[in-house]
Amino acid sequence: MTELEDLVVRLREFAAVREWDQFHTPKNLAMALAGEVGELLAELQWLTPEEAERVMHDPEAAARVRSELADVTIYLTRLADVLGVDLIAAAHVKLDEGERRYDAATYRGSIRKAPPIT
């Protein structure tokens, strides 16, 4: 079993023991995920780019960022499980699409978007 699969199982058990499955609807989990992403953003919001790059060198800030990243991971993983989505497989599919849309020779060092897929 992979570490992600271990986490999925642990989250299922965590919710089941507390009888929280009834609350773990896709809508509720997506909303909770959005809230946690907001909390992560709040940790970086008013930092300069240079300060943001150094945030992990401040023990207190690093602990807060790690905690918010953990919350995001937990809710994303739980949402994917409830929806029956294999996160790793979905990420590989998305990366494959990105490799087709953004060939390295054309987009290296560029921030521009690829044209829409028709």
Score class of each variant (00 low, 15 high):
44 L>Q: 04
83 L>W: 04
33 L>C: 09
105 A>H: 15
47 L>E: 07
25 T>N: 01
10 R>F: 11
56 M>N: 13
77 T>K: 01
108 R>M: 10
92 H>N: 14
62 A>M: 12
22 Q>A: 10
2 T>K: 04
80 A>H: 02
92 H>G: 09
27 K>A: 06
16 A>S: 15
43 E>S: 04
99 E>P: 10
19 E>I: 07
1 M>S: 13
100 R>L: 08
23 F>M: 12
40 L>F: 03
4 L>K: 12
12 R>N: 10
23 F>K: 13
10 R>H: 14
29 L>D: 01
38 G>R: 00
9 V>P: 11
23 F>P: 05
30 A>V: 07
99 E>R: 15
68 E>F: 00
34 A>F: 06
92 H>T: 11
93 V>P: 03
22 Q>M: 07
77 T>N: 00
3 E>D: 13
54 R>Q: 14
71 D>W: 03
106 T>R: 10
26 P>Q: 00
61 A>C: 11
16 A>G: 09
116 P>Q: 03
118 T>E: 14
88 I>W: 04
95 L>S: 14
86 D>R: 01
70 A>H: 00
110 S>F: 15
88 I>A: 05
9 V>E: 12
10 R>V: 10
53 E>H: 12
84 G>D: 01
113 K>D: 06
49 P>C: 07
41 L>R: 10
75 Y>A: 07
99 E>S: 14
101 R>I: 11
4 L>A: 09
29 L>W: 00
65 V>H: 00
5 E>N: 07
106 T>F: 14
16 A>W: 10
16 A>D: 12
35 G>F: 14
48 T>D: 06
73 T>V: 04
57 H>Y: 13
108 R>P: 04
18 R>P: 02
57 H>G: 12
12 R>S: 09
116 P>Y: 02
68 E>V: 01
21 D>F: 05
85 V>T: 11
72 V>I: 01
57 H>I: 07
85 V>S: 05
66 R>C: 12
51 E>L: 14
19 E>V: 08
50 E>T: 09
75 Y>P: 03
65 V>N: 01
43 E>C: 05
12 R>A: 03
61 A>F: 04
26 P>T: 04
79 L>Q: 00
17 V>N: 07
22 Q>Y: 12
80 A>W: 01
54 R>A: 13
37 V>M: 05
57 H>F: 09
74 I>L: 08
7 L>D: 03
5 E>D: 06
25 T>P: 08
9 V>I: 13
4 L>F: 10
94 K>F: 09
76 L>N: 05
104 A>I: 15
18 R>D: 09
27 K>D: 10
34 A>L: 07
85 V>F: 12
52 A>D: 10
34 A>E: 06
36 E>F: 00
28 N>P: 08
5 E>S: 02
113 K>P: 06
112 R>D: 06
57 H>T: 14
47 L>R: 04
33 L>K: 01
39 E>H: 00
61 A>V: 13
6 D>W: 12
8 V>C: 10
109 G>F: 15
75 Y>K: 06
21 D>K: 04
42 A>V: 02
30 A>L: 15
98 G>A: 13
91 A>D: 04
15 A>P: 13
70 A>E: 02
17 V>G: 10
14 F>D: 13
58 D>F: 14
117 I>K: 11
54 R>V: 09
82 V>P: 03
57 H>M: 13
5 E>K: 08
69 L>N: 05
59 P>A: 02
109 G>T: 15
105 A>T: 15
2 T>A: 02
65 V>P: 00
41 L>F: 10
67 S>W: 00
95 L>G: 08
22 Q>P: 08
18 R>K: 12
